[in-house]
């Protein structure tokens, strides 16, 4: 973990060599989800509510998934842009250093400009929380924290799967965007507004539902059944990263036997 921060520091220093670019990109990142959010706002302006969800509840949903996404893009960028590491042959360098490939790839790149996106979603989060009549408890705060963490872990897991594909081909990796960008777009609304099968995929296969929809039911007091179960869903969702980790290890082994 210590080393991870050292990587963070040196790349932050590098980033600060290009200040103007940093600020411009950050501002850009602030406004990209802003326009999406504006769409959301006008949608509710027109229809009032969707399937029993009001504007601020959905805004909370939106804020959480976007926070998780921006954090994962910032801190797990190494996996997101892993193909460049393969193309340049720098993965060989990773293999001759006495640390885990996971940590080194994670530390190979950070995207600090995502701070803009993070700021935007944080503002939405605060705004939504301010306008929702939630009875706060320690458990709910903890849950909120777990929701974001689990989102970060799931996005990271998807990046890892895409990165693993690089060991076989460095082309056609856009496929992964279906799951990251697509997943993000889907999960910014509560899952019950979709068809059953869509909701199922995003609960059991790629568990974005556990990031915001299910635990939000608990936070908003909409559950029918065991609260604890809903509260723990983010932790269950986090487990998604474990198989990704194994797949990654498998990929590394393949690379070392084929060298391509």
């Amino acid at each position: 973990m210590n080393l991870y921060f050292k990587y963070l520091l040196i790349l932050f220093k590098s980033q600060m060599q290009y200040r103007t670019s940093f600020w411009l990109l950050s501002i850009g990142q602030f406004f990209i989800p802003f326009s999406v959010f504006a769409g959301l706002y006008f949608l509710f302006e027109r229809f009032g509510q969707i399937k029993g969800w009001n504007f601020f509840e959905v805004a909370l949903c939106f804020a959480i998934i976007h926070m998780a996404f921006s954090l994962s893009e910032c801190f797990a960028r190494g996996f997101d842009t892993f193909s460049s590491l393969i193309i340049k042959g720098d993965f060989d360098r990773v293999l001759v250093r006495p640390r885990s490939t996971f940590l080194q790839v994670l530390g190979s790149k950070f995207e600090f400009t995502r701070i803009g996106r993070l700021a935007q979603s944080a503002i939405v989060l605060l705004w939504a929380l301010n306008n929702l009549p939630i009875e706060w408890s320690l458990l709910k705060i903890v849950t909120l924290f777990f929701m974001i963490t689990s989102g970060v872990l799931i996005f990271t897991g998807i990046y890892m799967l895409a990165a693993t594909m690089c060991f076989w081909t460095v082309q056609g990796l856009e496929v992964a965007n279906i799951f990251t960008d697509g997943g993000r777009e889907m999960a910014q609304y509560p899952l019950n507004i979709y068809q059953k099968w869509v909701a199922r995929i995003f609960t059991y296969v790629i568990p974005f539902g556990t990031v915001n929809y299910l635990p939000l039911l608990f936070i908003l007091g909409k559950t029918n059944g065991n609260d604890l179960l809903y509260m723990l869903t983010p932790i269950a969702g986090s487990l998604f990263i474990l198989p990704c980790f194994l797949v990654w290890q498998f990929g590394v082994r393949h690379y070392r036997s084929t060298g391509s």
Binding site: N2, I10, P98
Partner: peptide
């Protein structure tokens, strides 16, 4: 590897050395 760099491109050389110190403990 003569054709590839192992140093961090945008920071002073000494920073790369310091980081390697941590990588190799």
């Amino acid at each position: 590897f003569g054709q590839r760099s192992q140093l961090w491109w945008d920071v002073p050389v000494i920073d790369s050395f310091e980081l390697l110190k941590d990588i190799y403990k």
